[in-house]
Computed example of a mutant assay.
Amino acid sequence: MASFEHDFPFDPTHGHTLDDLLRISAPDAAPADFADFWRGRYEEARKVDTEPELGPPEDERDGVRIHGVTFTSVGGVRLGGWVALPDTGTAEHGFVIGHGYGGREAAGPDVPLPLPRSAAILPCVRGMVSRGLLPGVPTVSSAHVLHGIESRDTYVIGDCVADLWCAASALHELVPELAPGTGAPLLGYLGESFGGGLGALAVPWDDRFGAAQLTVPTFGNHPLRLTLQCTGSGEAVRGYHRDRPEVTEVLRYFDAATAATWLKQPTLVAAALFDPSVPPPGQFAVHNALAGESELQVLSAGHFEHEGLAAETAELRAARKWFFGERLGR
């Protein structure tokens, strides 16, 4: 069991050992129309003309040029982010890279990319700084995670998943050598925390993705998650649930562990034993429920500064490079 000195008013391991965590999976019963719901959302997103517009270069490093980008997503909203393109030659691999709750201000630590000669789109999903800001959509995670939660059809998390699908469409339009039918490898998906949970919800229905890597993914096993105190967005959902327990019917459609039972693409999950923000049982539930080939990287802690963090980050970066090289390399 991971042990760190901390001042949280709860135990971020929630008393679980690794053996305990490896036995936790998806909730027992998914909605009968779970897959139909998500396939319908996906089909709607694929109909969107994303009309991507690439801005001038903003940075050049680690073998890529980084540009600003804007594109259209479901509902006609215009979102932004960044695109990384090889600084020489054409792209041989493509990635969609999600972000944590709080958004992103730049391409940041997501570059260098997992494989050389790659292109990637790094979108800001709706409501998130700095290029996903939308009137009426909260930017703070505790409010964002509740936006539209009254109905599965209005919940912002569903639209954020669609934003990732539209980002993939935009990348294919901007980098046509990666588009389906060209012989290029399928896309890879990377996401951490919020982006990890969104990826688990997005990838199963999109055959443009060939592999995924999810780090400390959120939204796993909501029935269990609602019982576990945390410092992240889950605490806002727990508070909402105490007053409106009927929200569980909506949350059933947005469970990353349930979605993982349909996720057949090879997936590397980095899950933490100690995490104050995203309870570890939910993270491991996503990995344990995966329908396809899976790899597990066990982290001592997530969302927490500790002495071994730099070494674990380097180890995960190496594992990611190997994982995508084996699944998407050519």
Rank of each mutant, 00 (worst) to 15 (best):
P276T: 02
G80V: 05
A32R: 14
P266G: 04
E293V: 10
E249Q: 14
G15T: 07
P217V: 03
A270W: 11
L113Y: 09
A259K: 03
Q265F: 06
Q297F: 14
H14Y: 07
P123F: 04
V77E: 09
G195F: 05
V161Q: 02
R131T: 09
A170G: 14
C230A: 15
A271V: 03
I24C: 11
C166G: 12
E150S: 14
E312M: 03
L190F: 10
P217Y: 03
P245L: 09
W82A: 02
S169N: 13
W38M: 02
G292N: 08
V175M: 12
L296H: 10
R65Q: 08
E249W: 02
R39I: 05
P245R: 11
E326S: 14
G220I: 02
E312N: 03
S3K: 13
T72A: 14
L187G: 08
T261C: 01
V247A: 02
T218R: 00
F284Q: 04
F8A: 03
S25Y: 04
P52W: 08
G325A: 08
G108Q: 14
D33M: 09
G329P: 07
P109R: 14
Q229F: 09
T13P: 02
L187Y: 07
A259Y: 03
G89E: 11
G80K: 05
L290P: 07
V129K: 12
F4T: 12
L22V: 08
D59V: 04
